[in-house]
Design a protein around this nucleic acid. Structure first.
Lengths: 143, 143
DNA sequence: GCAGATATGACGAACTTCGGATTATTCAAT
DNA sequence: ATTGAATAATCCGAAGTTCGTCATATCTGC
């Protein structure tokens, strides 16, 4: 198979860099004081998997449980997360989002969608499916 | 102009997520103990702009100067960065990479290129320029 | 020369990650 | 039932980070 040229690689890399730099600054979005990345990931995971425990999150994110414990602690303290003792196994904790936390998590999902929408809008309608197809191929192709 | 469909947005978002998750774990690469993100960015900036000062880096990265000072301090202490007092303005410091730092920085550039190369290799040769073109359009289009 | 701007560095407060010990439970095997 | 190992989560504290405030050296224009 033909190899990509150095020029192609460089052009692509430059474009990604430009994109990232541009939309990092525009990132913050809403008013609330920004959460750190781990807390956001935690929130999003609990949104998708209600009633899971710290261990599940740790396994998913590939981080030590104590780190997740700190994160859930912060989030609980700021009222975005609730810890429920569950019957059946009283060691375990079932994490759930408070209304506030859910709102916050949904707003992150919304921001993510907006970013993706914006990207697609910059392409001609006819190009969009081709682009999505290529990104999909890149993301899921086996080695 | 036709709007992207919710389905298109979701598919694209899922692909990006899969991609990021997949290549975050494979990330570390070489043996050396990994630098934190700020230190890497600092190294790369100095590679591209030798003899610049902390203030330049701070402006470029949009961070407080003191933060950059900490970073250059760490890098100098671990022998990747040299501070030179420059004639002409003796307040200023000219930052340069040591041989070790340059090696390190180049290895990051190389890793970045490899990632981009790998992405292109997953596409058919005929698709590559189209992909690069779309990404370029997305990255640089004015609003 | 001097006042005020400028480039850095020193210091310390607040916050994070994460290893090691601790507590509470459950499970397994006698 | 009893005990010993495994398991879920948290507590505690060390090490490292960001970044505001203050101090220091140096320029620059009047």
């Amino acid at each position: 198979m033909t190899k990509p040229t150095a020029d192609q690689i460089a052009t692509l890399g430059a474009a990604f860099e430009a994109f990232v730099r541009r939309y990092k600054l525009a990132g913050a979005g809403t008013s609330d004081k920004p959460l750190n990345e781990l807390d956001v990931q935690t929130l999003l995971f609990v949104l998708r998997h209600p009633d899971s425990g710290p261990t599940d999150i740790a396994r998913f994110l590939g981080l030590p449980v104590t780190t997740i414990s700190s994160a859930t602690d912060r989030l609980a303290k700021s009222g975005m997360l609730e810890r429920h003792r569950i019957e059946g196994d009283r060691r375990a904790v079932a994490l759930r989002l408070s209304e506030d936390g859910a709102k916050r998590a949904r707003s992150h999902v919304e921001a993510y969608n907006s970013l993706n929408r914006m990207m697609l809008e910059r392409l001609a309608p006819a190009e969009r499916d081709a682009f999505i197809g290529m990104v999909t191929k890149i993301a899921y192709d086996e080695d």
